[in-house]
Simulated assay, not measured.
Amino acid sequence: MSSQSEDGDCTERGAHPTHVDFALAGDDGCIAQARDQATGFLTRLRDKHGLDVSPYTVGMTQLIVSELVTNALKYAPGPVLMELRVTGPRVEIVVRDSNPIMPSAHPTDPDRVGRHGLEIVRAVAQDLDIQRQPVGKRVTARIALSGVPAAGTADRDAR
Protein backbone atom coordinates (compact mmCIF):
# COMPACT_ATOMS: atom_id res chain seq x y z
CA MET A 1 0.00 0.00 0.00
CA SER A 2 1.47 3.33 -0.98
CA SER A 3 0.14 6.87 -1.03
CA GLN A 4 1.56 10.34 -1.27
CA SER A 5 0.39 13.65 0.18
CA GLU A 6 -0.59 16.64 -1.94
CA ASP A 7 2.75 18.32 -1.30
CA GLY A 8 4.67 15.13 -2.14
CA ASP A 9 6.86 15.35 0.95
CA CYS A 10 5.40 12.54 3.06
CA THR A 11 5.03 9.10 1.57
CA GLU A 12 3.51 6.05 3.21
CA ARG A 13 5.89 3.25 2.34
CA GLY A 14 4.10 0.23 3.68
CA ALA A 15 1.19 -0.80 5.80
CA HIS A 16 0.03 -3.84 7.72
CA PRO A 17 -2.74 -3.96 10.32
CA THR A 18 -0.19 -3.71 13.15
CA HIS A 19 2.66 -1.94 11.35
CA VAL A 20 3.03 1.10 9.09
CA ASP A 21 6.04 3.11 7.94
CA PHE A 22 6.51 6.46 6.24
CA ALA A 23 9.26 8.45 4.56
CA LEU A 24 9.22 12.10 5.64
CA ALA A 25 11.17 14.80 3.81
CA GLY A 26 12.02 18.12 5.42
CA ASP A 27 8.75 20.03 5.34
CA ASP A 28 7.13 21.20 8.59
CA GLY A 29 3.82 19.98 7.18
CA CYS A 30 5.18 16.47 7.58
CA ILE A 31 5.11 16.86 11.37
CA ALA A 32 1.36 17.42 11.34
CA GLN A 33 0.90 14.65 8.80
CA ALA A 34 3.00 12.28 10.93
CA ARG A 35 0.73 13.01 13.92
CA ASP A 36 -2.34 12.46 11.73
CA GLN A 37 -0.93 9.19 10.42
CA ALA A 38 -0.28 8.03 14.00
CA THR A 39 -3.86 8.88 14.97
CA GLY A 40 -5.21 7.10 11.91
CA PHE A 41 -3.09 4.03 12.62
CA LEU A 42 -4.30 3.79 16.22
CA THR A 43 -7.91 4.47 15.20
CA ARG A 44 -7.76 1.64 12.62
CA LEU A 45 -6.32 -0.70 15.26
CA ARG A 46 -9.25 0.12 17.53
CA ASP A 47 -12.11 0.35 15.03
CA LYS A 48 -11.18 -2.28 12.44
CA HIS A 49 -9.08 -4.73 14.41
CA GLY A 50 -10.71 -4.53 17.83
CA LEU A 51 -7.59 -3.62 19.82
CA ASP A 52 -8.04 -1.72 23.06
CA VAL A 53 -6.42 1.65 22.30
CA SER A 54 -6.93 4.24 25.01
CA PRO A 55 -7.42 7.97 24.36
CA TYR A 56 -4.31 8.49 26.54
CA THR A 57 -2.30 6.35 24.12
CA VAL A 58 -3.53 8.34 21.14
CA GLY A 59 -2.61 11.66 22.73
CA MET A 60 0.78 10.55 24.00
CA THR A 61 1.62 8.89 20.68
CA GLN A 62 0.82 12.15 18.90
CA LEU A 63 3.10 14.01 21.32
CA ILE A 64 5.97 11.53 20.94
CA VAL A 65 5.65 11.51 17.14
CA SER A 66 5.65 15.30 17.08
CA GLU A 67 8.78 15.59 19.24
CA LEU A 68 10.79 12.84 17.54
CA VAL A 69 9.92 13.86 13.98
CA THR A 70 10.53 17.55 14.74
CA ASN A 71 13.99 16.77 16.11
CA ALA A 72 14.88 14.49 13.21
CA LEU A 73 13.78 17.02 10.60
CA LYS A 74 15.56 19.83 12.43
CA TYR A 75 18.92 18.14 13.03
CA ALA A 76 19.38 15.50 10.32
CA PRO A 77 20.09 16.01 6.64
CA GLY A 78 18.09 13.90 4.25
CA PRO A 79 14.97 11.83 4.68
CA VAL A 80 13.46 10.74 7.96
CA LEU A 81 11.71 7.39 8.31
CA MET A 82 8.93 6.81 10.82
CA GLU A 83 7.46 3.46 11.80
CA LEU A 84 4.50 2.71 14.02
CA ARG A 85 3.99 -0.85 15.17
CA VAL A 86 2.24 -2.87 17.81
CA THR A 87 4.40 -5.24 19.82
CA GLY A 88 2.32 -7.09 22.37
CA PRO A 89 0.64 -4.63 24.74
CA ARG A 90 2.57 -1.60 23.46
CA VAL A 91 2.83 0.67 20.47
CA GLU A 92 6.33 1.50 19.25
CA ILE A 93 7.15 4.81 17.61
CA VAL A 94 10.39 4.47 15.63
CA VAL A 95 12.11 7.41 13.95
CA ARG A 96 15.26 6.93 11.86
CA ASP A 97 17.41 9.74 10.53
CA SER A 98 20.82 10.15 8.90
CA ASN A 99 22.51 12.16 11.68
CA PRO A 100 24.94 9.91 13.60
CA ILE A 101 25.08 12.27 16.61
CA MET A 102 23.26 10.73 19.54
CA PRO A 103 20.75 13.08 21.18
CA SER A 104 21.02 13.92 24.85
CA ALA A 105 18.74 15.71 27.27
CA HIS A 106 19.98 19.07 28.45
CA PRO A 107 20.30 19.86 32.16
CA THR A 108 17.27 21.50 33.72
CA ASP A 109 17.29 25.23 33.07
CA PRO A 110 14.11 27.26 33.65
CA ASP A 111 15.45 29.99 31.34
CA ARG A 112 16.04 27.67 28.37
CA VAL A 113 13.57 28.09 25.54
CA GLY A 114 13.11 25.00 23.39
CA ARG A 115 15.25 21.87 23.16
CA HIS A 116 12.97 19.93 25.53
CA GLY A 117 11.90 17.23 23.05
CA LEU A 118 13.92 14.35 24.47
CA GLU A 119 12.92 15.30 28.02
CA ILE A 120 9.26 15.24 27.01
CA VAL A 121 9.56 11.86 25.29
CA ARG A 122 11.37 10.37 28.28
CA ALA A 123 8.66 11.69 30.60
CA VAL A 124 5.74 10.10 28.74
CA ALA A 125 7.21 6.95 27.17
CA GLN A 126 7.46 3.67 29.03
CA ASP A 127 10.75 3.00 27.33
CA LEU A 128 13.14 4.96 25.14
CA ASP A 129 15.88 3.30 23.12
CA ILE A 130 18.40 5.23 21.01
CA GLN A 131 20.78 3.24 18.81
CA ARG A 132 23.41 4.26 16.31
CA GLN A 133 22.83 2.66 12.92
CA PRO A 134 25.22 2.12 9.98
CA VAL A 135 23.80 5.40 8.66
CA GLY A 136 22.49 7.72 11.36
CA LYS A 137 20.44 6.56 14.30
CA ARG A 138 17.16 4.95 15.34
CA VAL A 139 15.06 6.32 18.20
CA THR A 140 12.35 4.02 19.53
CA ALA A 141 9.78 5.08 22.11
CA ARG A 142 7.26 2.64 23.55
CA ILE A 143 3.93 3.36 25.22
CA ALA A 144 1.11 1.17 26.55
CA LEU A 145 -1.53 0.45 23.92
CA SER A 146 -4.37 0.61 26.43
CA GLY A 147 -4.86 2.38 29.72
CA VAL A 148 -2.64 4.82 31.54
CA PRO A 149 0.67 3.35 32.76
CA ALA A 150 1.24 3.32 36.51
CA ALA A 151 3.71 5.87 37.84
CA GLY A 152 7.21 4.56 38.35
CA THR A 153 6.91 1.63 35.92
CA ALA A 154 8.70 3.24 33.02
CA ASP A 155 12.19 2.34 31.95
CA ARG A 156 13.46 5.70 30.75
CA ASP A 157 17.14 4.94 30.21
CA ALA A 158 18.30 5.63 26.68
CA ARG A 159 20.79 3.11 25.38
Rank of each mutant, 00 (worst) to 15 (best):
G40E: 06
P89E: 15
H49M: 06
L45C: 03
Q133S: 09
H49Q: 02
S66I: 09
G29A: 09
A38L: 02
R112A: 15
I93L: 06
P134W: 07
Q62W: 04
G152V: 03
R138I: 05
R96Y: 08
F41S: 01
I143C: 03
R132H: 09
Q133I: 07
V91C: 09
D129C: 14
G78Q: 08
D21E: 15
D7M: 14
R122I: 08
K48T: 12
P55T: 12
D21F: 15
A38F: 00
V94P: 08
S104A: 13
L24T: 01
P110W: 10
A34T: 05
A34R: 05
L51P: 00
D21V: 14
E92V: 13
K48D: 08
Q126P: 04
L63H: 03
H116M: 09
I93D: 00
P103C: 11
V91D: 05
Q62A: 14
V135S: 11
I120P: 02
T140F: 12
G136N: 03
G152Q: 03
K74H: 05
V139T: 14
Y56N: 06
T108S: 13
I120F: 11
R122P: 02
L145P: 00
G50P: 01
M1P: 10
P79T: 15
H19T: 12
T153C: 07
A23K: 07
G50I: 08
Q126D: 12
G59L: 14
S3M: 09
G147F: 06
E6C: 14
Q62K: 12
L84A: 09
C30N: 09
V65E: 02
R44N: 04
A150V: 15
R44V: 04
L24D: 01
G88N: 02
Q4A: 10
T18S: 11
T140M: 14
G136S: 08
H116G: 05
V80F: 10
V86P: 01
R46P: 02
M1A: 13
A72I: 00
G50E: 05
P100S: 06
D36K: 08
L84F: 06
A72Y: 05
R35H: 04
V139W: 07
D109K: 09
P89L: 13
D47W: 01
H116T: 10
C30H: 01
I120C: 02
V53K: 00
F41M: 00
A34K: 01
R46G: 03
